[in-house]
Write a protein that binds this DNA or RNA. Structure first.
Lengths: 253, 253
DNA sequence: TGTTTTTAATACCAATTTAATACCAGATCC
DNA sequence: GGATCTGGTATTAAATTGGTATTAAAAACA
């Protein structure tokens, strides 16, 4: 047995079969990806050596190698000759886009308890600027959702969502996730465009976030679109600069 | 059953009939077009093999081939011998993330003239933190590139790049784009992971950016990786909060 | 009605991928 | 410094992929 194998590897065994409609190396990659992203194999952990893995799953070393290589291309693993294969930090694959979809999911993935305090829930006419951004006619009505977002009871962000009433007729008709509700109503968000910048908090917002006036904040403006390209939602958020990181992962090819 | 067919294909069955006033291959093309554009096949990039499809729909391979060819002419599919048929990614919406690759390109796309003032260009030992982030051994050497970035002659950002000397042996050996240079050296950046947050500028940085002390800034930390997953570069940037927007576009599906 | 075009089948060809074995080279550890 | 770990690479055979030629029936057309 390899010297550097951590406690028998901690990898669950699995039966790989040539009869399945997926090549062996992809079956193996899939299994390992599960083990890694599910947290069963901790960050920075070493994987068992290639020979050991080949032996354990009953395939050749080349097959193991192809599986590991494909996971490397995904950014989950890295290797060093003479040392072995290691799990990358920040391999929260499922989380890649969740930061943009749902506040609660985002918080959950960071291991924080999320909470919401409603500041405003009403219907009114769109301002000229909102009408422009949401592609509405002047005077069209919008639902306005202003929420204070909490992480472990600490104020983390203020979020103002504006949705045309044709997509959200009743702003009181839901609890929890706005996106889930919109999906239920048959208006699933499909694409989003975000702008991020750093701003100084105005007194009003600073007070609500329990920060001194002028503290730095991450300002995120988001426009969400339906599949047919129609604007669904406009959100302006202020995140506490001292407590929130926005993570983006991307390919440069 | 085909070995390489991905997960039974996920294609709904349909009854094709010679008695209809539409040739078999067009009936099949129509059905597949529906499945693709409706997004039912979006999660499977690959289609089942031609033989598998022929078998499943009870027609000959040539018929399947004609159907797939006509969809190719429409731009929905592409093929590779030995591999199979793939749904074009252009049918999914493309992500525009190039704003993250190069400062100069980013500026150019905003119609601004970009400039650079070198603050530091040297080689030294990696700090323990850098060694961890770049997967180096303690004492390994890194090139340190500290640049003041200008947009139309206004200071816009301060950027500190750290690259292991094994990838960038001579920090003076290039002008212009670091990424272009790394590509020329055979180390093309492949993937990046970014963290963004808002910070208050420390006096030193504030002075260099010609801002008052404590002004808000967008802090962007980026790690860039090679295709094989090895860390290539670590960058820490401070962007003026009053002059820079960071744009992200993405799909929520 | 004879001719051409389209349709759809069978059979065989060529490129690619898969997955194995055997051996090479760099790192680590004593 | 030399075992002996580690990953790296070259070579191979078999399986699977799409590619193509040939044929015949059906449909369209003159």
């Amino acid at each position: 047995m390899s010297l550097r194998t951590p406690e028998a590897g901690g990898i669950e065994p699995i039966e790989l079969s040539q009869d399945l409609p997926l090549p062996l190396y992809l079956q193996l990659a899939k299994h390992l990806r599960n083990q890694i992203t599910s947290g069963k194999l901790a960050e920075y952990d070493a994987l068992p050596g290639e020979r050991e893995l080949a032996d354990r799953f009953g395939v050749s070393r080349v097959t193991v190698r192809k599986a590991l290589s494909s996971l490397t291309a995904e950014g989950l693993l890295n290797k060093r000759q003479g040392s072995g294969w290691f799990i990358n930090s920040s391999t929260h694959v499922e989380q890649r886009l969740s930061a943009l979809t749902s506040f609660s999911e985002d918080m959950a993935s960071r291991g924080l308890q999320s909470g919401t305090v409603w500041l405003d829930r009403s219907i009114s006419r769109a301002t000229p600027e909102e009408a422009l951004l949401l592609n509405l006619r002047p005077g069209d009505q919008v639902a306005r959702l202003n929420r204070l977002r909490l992480a472990d009871k600490t104020p983390l962000a203020i979020e103002l969502s504006v949705v045309p009433t044709k997509y959200l007729p009743d702003p009181f008709g839901f609890e929890g996730s706005l996106y889930q509700h919109l999906r239920n109503l048959g208006h699933p968000p499909h694409r989003a465009l975000q702008r991020l910048s750093a701003v100084r908090l105005i007194p009003d917002l600073a007070r609500q976030l329990e920060l001194p006036e002028g503290a730095p904040a991450l300002y995120i403006e988001r426009r969400t679109f339906l599949e047919d390209g129609a604007p669904l939602e406009f959100v302006a958020s202020h995140y506490r600069g001292d407590a929130y990181d926005f993570v983006v992962e991307l390919n440069l090819t």
